[in-house]
Design a protein around this nucleic acid. Sequence first.
DNA 1: CTGCCTCCAGACAACTTGTCTTAGAGCAAC
DNA 2: GTTGCTCTAAGACAAGTTGTCTGGAGGCAG
Lengths: 137, 137
Amino acid sequence: MARSYRDITDAELAVMQVLWDRGEASIRQICDVLYPNGGPSHYATVQKLLERLEAKGFVHRDRSLQVHLFRATIGRDDLIGLRLRSLAEQLCGGSLTPLLTHLVKTKALSPQERAELRALIEQSEDAPRRRGSRKQT
Amino acid sequence: MARSYRDITDAELAVMQVLWDRGEASIRQICDVLYPNGGPSHYATVQKLLERLEAKGFVHRDRSLQVHLFRATIGRDDLIGLRLRSLAEQLCGGSLTPLLTHLVKTKALSPQERAELRALIEQSEDAPRRRGSRKQT
DNA sequence: CTGCCTCCAGACAACTTGTCTTAGAGCAAC
DNA sequence: GTTGCTCTAAGACAAGTTGTCTGGAGGCAG
């Protein structure tokens, strides 16, 4: 009954953040970022986290070099989407609309944010059949 | 390092859903909804889930009757808010804005939804300080 | 009294999560 | 070639979570 898409853990997320920053990195590089002057055990920890991320499909491992290189197969924004969808699944019967209205109602919008939002809405109005790239609910 | 607000589990969520539906319920009533013709072990399961929900503060237990009555201390919408905030914390540096724009960009809005959204934005424009209950980022 | 229903306390296995240990391979410099 | 470094690989480990279940004690109705 675990969440269907095998979620990313906190420690794993830290690794993902590095990958999102650098685009591609070796274990050593990630380790240096996450645990400056960390010992070999930290190295192994990062290694395990990457192994699990690869198993979950969130990371691609390039084995062509001696030193494997890792790359995120999912963007931060994609992960946000997954989480939002999973949240909607659990609490809103799958519909994203309640999340949207909740945010607009709860969050105090700055004038700039209001303007941006309006622009986005206009945009989706102009091209209502444009949504080929992403699924919608 | 567990999520700060002690999240609600899947099985616990099922119990919450019943409470949100009925407003107030005994273990037996919840049990009948969740496990029709379930045995005494299911009863104990629900009991334990309620105990944990009470410990986490999501449920109030009225002990004044012989048969305790349970009531959710948090609405579905509040939980949505908590989850959204936690999501923003993890992936957006605490800002809810990326979630908002993600939703507007991703989700294909029906004309009606667009109208509602616009109305909500107008509203927040009229009363920018009306939402004082929670901090916003 | 008997039976039924409730509450309470805690056991339990399965799984997750973050960390760490150990072993072995490949390569570079001495 | 041997030494030493870095890398991969495999898995052990404790702690915590989660969902389920067992057993006992008390109260009340028939």
